[in-house]
């Protein structure tokens, strides 16, 4: 049988498939539909220092082969996450990364410090790429200097736990922002977050979302995401020896394999879970079929194997 395990940030993962932040709850929301422990890893919804109500409605609109969202990082906040969710997280046998959100660097640092001491947290994903909030989010993620500052400050607060930096594709050259994150101590890069986008109601001539713009996700963005992963792999990650978590429109094992060939060590799956709640588990299971057909003994041998 093919080996689909992956070595990632010092962890031995069962497979390369993670849930993508904001699409899978805090940990157990999907337990009615799938075996959470079958995942390679789990990334929580963004956690901010204080609870966030999120944006006004409408917050989502479907598009051809995708959707745009402007949820606005609605979450229960650090205190409730620690009290209510961490005990449940501790019951699972899956590496859990907490996605970090904030309006100021200090916000991010305080959430990270508070969570770094818990053994049940494997690491962090620094969200500097949310397009739907007025302060924080993408405002940190488009300026290389700002990326270096926040990455190095938050990295200091992780108590040695690994930190993935999640990048926005809404920049001129993603290799520049990727390099800034790596220079400042990112242990891995995840790309891409959603693309800033708009849907207009032609009856009213108004944007459909209350936030006017939102982030485009789903299969519509996959080929662009694959290209950007390959670019960052060649120009930044491979030379620096840093792994990439690839994401953007993954719906099937074939999509996952495409990202791995492009240079991703692991992937995360978001919008597909909205359509099929057990999508992550199914994708991980289906990876074996490709390995078998292509006579691949170790799935990790595909990483960055683009001819």
């Amino acid at each position: 049988m093919s080996d689909i395990s992956i070595d990632f940030l010092g962890l031995k993962l069962k497979n390369p498939v993670f849930t993508a932040s904001g699409t899978c709850g805090y940990i157990d929301e999907l337990s009615d539909y799938m075996d959470i422990n079958s995942l390679g890893g789990f990334i929580t919804k963004s956690i901010s220092i204080k609870p966030r109500m999120g944006n006004k409605l409408p917050r989502v609109a479907e598009t051809s082969c995708g959707m745009i969202n402007a949820i606005g990082l609605a979450n229960i906040g650090l205190d409730r996450f620690v009290k209510e969710k961490l005990p449940i997280i501790a019951e699972y046998d899956v590496p859990v990364f907490v996605n970090l959100a904030g309006e100021t660097i200090d916000d991010y640092v305080r959430v990270t410090e508070a969570l770094a001491e818990y053994d049940s947290i494997a690491g962090f994903e620094l969200n500097i790429s949310c397009p739907n909030v007025k302060a924080g989010g993408i405002t940190f993620g488009t300026d290389p200097k700002a990326i270096e500052k926040i990455t190095s400050e938050v990295k200091k607060a992780t108590s040695g736990k690994p930190m993935i930096v999640k990048l926005t594709p809404t920049v001129t050259d993603i290799s520049v922002t990727a390099q800034a994150a790596v220079n400042a101590g990112a242990d891995a890069l995840s790309l891409v977050n959603t693309f800033t986008a708009m849907v207009i109601d032609i009856e009213t001539r108004k944007p459909v979302l209350a936030n006017r713009t939102g982030g485009l996700s789903g299969p519509a963005i996959k080929p662009i995401a694959v290209y950007l992963v390959n670019k960052v792999y060649n120009e930044v990650a491979k030379p620096a020896g840093i792994p990439i978590m690839g994401l953007g429109g993954i719906q099937s094992a074939s999509d996952c394999i495409e990202f791995m060939i492009a240079g991703a060590s692991v992937v995360s799956v978001g919008t597909a879970t909205f359509v099929d709640p057990n999508a992550t588990q199914r994708i991980a299971e289906d990876l074996r079929e490709y390995c078998k057909r292509k006579n691949i003994s170790k799935l990790s041998s595909l990483i960055g194997s683009l001819e």
Partner: peptide, 15 residues
């Protein structure tokens, strides 16, 4: 009634 992306409490769109 709300527009829902997931319907199962994940996406927070049907607030």
């Amino acid at each position: 009634e709300r527009i829902m992306a997931c319907g199962i409490g994940l996406c927070q769109s049907c607030a």
